[in-house]
Amino acid sequence: MDDYPLLNLFWTMLELFVFILWFFLLFKIITDIFRSDDMGGWGKAGWTIFVILLPLIGVLVYLIARGSSMAQRDVDQMRKTDEAFQAYVRQAAAEGGGGTGGSHADQLAKLAELKNTGAISDDEFQKAKAKLLA
């Protein structure tokens, strides 16, 4: 380790950091290319080939040409994810939480409807009601 001065160690660490940062940026841009709805298949293929074959120039040109709309696509993706999550929460709450098939009031209403239509007897209705309320 005597042949490797401290300044060279810092320089190597900086190069490693920039290399890792470069990969993060490259993956972010490739993700943005495929997520973009305003580009067709040929446009996506062209940008992907350009970014992979000429990485430094391709990434810089992509950031100059389409960088301003990358943030908007990120916001749109987060909004879609949040809306999907909110819809799932509303659906789970409407179903009564644990997949029980609805709230007790809904189940009682279904039992009353079955009794009124004659599908179950009054005795069966009372037993099912007692079991549900227990």
Score class of each variant (00 low, 15 high):
A45M: 15
T48S: 10
V89P: 01
Q77W: 11
V75Y: 13
M70W: 05
G97V: 01
Q72T: 12
R35A: 13
E83I: 05
G58K: 02
V89Q: 10
H104S: 12
F85H: 03
G40Y: 04
I49S: 12
L56D: 04
A105C: 05
F50H: 14
F85R: 11
G41Y: 11
G58I: 04
I49T: 15
I52S: 11
V89N: 02
R66C: 10
R73W: 04
P55L: 11
F85V: 02
G99Y: 06
F50I: 03
F50T: 10
A93T: 08
E83F: 01
P55C: 08
D37T: 14
G98E: 05
S69R: 14
Q91I: 01
S68L: 08
S68Y: 09
R90E: 01
W42A: 13
K44M: 00
G46R: 13
V59K: 10
I57S: 05
V51M: 07
G67E: 06
S103A: 04
A71R: 12
T100G: 09
L53T: 13
L54A: 12
I33C: 05
A65I: 07
M78L: 15
G58A: 04
I33R: 10
I64K: 13
R73F: 12
K80Q: 13
F85L: 11
I33M: 11
Q86P: 00
A87Q: 03
A87I: 00
V75C: 02
D37P: 12
T48G: 03
V75I: 15
W42Y: 10
G98T: 10
F50R: 14
I52Y: 07
M70T: 04
L60T: 06
F34A: 01
R79H: 06
I33V: 15
T48K: 06
G101T: 02
A65R: 07
E95T: 00
L53R: 13
K80M: 09
Q72S: 07
Y62D: 06
D82S: 08
L63S: 00
D76Q: 15
A93I: 02
L60D: 03
A84Y: 04
I57E: 06
S103K: 09
A94P: 01
I52V: 15
G102W: 07
A94I: 00
D76I: 01
D37F: 11
Y62M: 05
I33T: 11
H104E: 08
S69G: 06
G97R: 04
L63R: 09
M78R: 14
Y88P: 01
L53K: 15
Q91S: 15
G43H: 03
G67P: 00
V59R: 13
Y88G: 05
D32M: 08
G101H: 09
Q77K: 05
G41P: 05
T100D: 08
T100W: 00
L60R: 08
L53G: 01
G58H: 12
G46K: 06
D82Y: 08
E95K: 05
P55K: 03
